[in-house]
């Protein structure tokens, strides 16, 4: 069974600042696999080992995203695809979901597509459901556990807002994974060595026969018009003094 795991590369820290002169984001250049996507890779590797399947990584982004794909291969995935070209850049979630779903169709016979529950930078969690819609498959979002049944179904446990839900879907299906699902494995030195020999294919919009109106900036209905630091609506603090007993007294009097 073919399992595709969609992964995004994110900055290694969220400690970004705004340059006061240029108003541009200042962020570290080094990227890592979005942490939730590691849980998705781990889930895929476990299912592969049960079913003799194949785990294929898929990412859309600049050349530098190779690093994350290599890291995922070193965790044990079998092959990887990178969708990369200028025309794909500047995409919002809608224009990210479209090329990803087209690539999954081109890979062919994919029975399960896994996502992280959300990225830790832009943080929308939208790409998984968008791809599920384009592929016209059922979605299990915010999954805490998944299991395959004998008859080609998947049982998923989801955590909802005030409830827990168990669902059964017929494959193919899409699942977004919570970190509670598992503990991602570390790459062993031997796996890291092997990762460089595994197939990593780069596709552009031409390889996928994409509609140019639906990709990149042109295909993105949303526009970011302004980026700024949160307004610090700071309070004026009254400090309590003396012994803890005294401070509590002071507090209770003023409340």
């Amino acid at each position: 069974m073919k399992i595709v795991v969609c992964i995004k590369q994110v900055p290694s820290t969220n400690d970004v600042k705004i340059d006061p002169q240029t108003h541009n984001l200042v962020r570290s250049a080094d990227g890592v696999i979005n942490p939730f996507d590691k849980n998705a890779i781990e889930a895929a590797l476990k299912l592969r080992d049960q079913t003799n399947g194949e785990v294929i990584l898929l990412s859309m982004g600049p050349e530098s995203y190779r690093e994350s794909l290599l890291e995922g291969l070193a965790m044990g995935a079998d092959s990887a695809y990178l969708l990369s070209s200028r025309a794909l850049g500047g995409a919002d979630t809608l224009a990210t979901g479209y090329p990803l779903s087209q690539a999954i169709q081109k890979i062919g016979d994919v029975e399960l597509v896994l996502f992280g529950r959300q990225s830790v930078d832009a943080d929308t969690g939208q790409v998984g459901p968008i791809v599920a819609e384009y592929l016209n498959v059922p979605q299990v979002t915010f999954a805490e556990a998944i299991d395959l049944t004998e008859d080609h179904h998947l049982i998923g446990k989801r955590r909802l807002d005030a409830a827990e839900q168990e669902v059964e879907v017929e494959l193919p299906a899409a699942v977004t994974v919570r970190s509670e699902m598992n503990q991602p494995r570390y790459a062993t030195p031997r796996q890291i060595q092997k990762s460089f020999e595994k197939p990593l294919t780069v596709w552009t919009e031409q390889d996928l026969d994409l509609d140019p109106e639906r990709i990149g900036l042109a295909g993105s209905p949303t526009q970011v018009t302004q980026v700024y630091a949160p307004a610090a609506a700071k309070k004026r603090v009254t400090m309590l003094t003396g012994t803890p007993e005294h401070a509590v007294q002071e507090l209770l009097q003023s409340l």
Binding site: T93, T124, Q126, P129, F142
Partner: peptide, 23 residues
């Protein structure tokens, strides 16, 4: 922007081919 809303809205967004801003 609950679990339910964040699961449903993007699915609808893709059907409608419009933009969705998160959270």
């Amino acid at each position: 922007a609950t679990t339910a809303g964040r699961s449903l809205a993007p699915r609808l967004q893709a059907k409608l081919q419009t933009g969705l801003t998160a959270d």
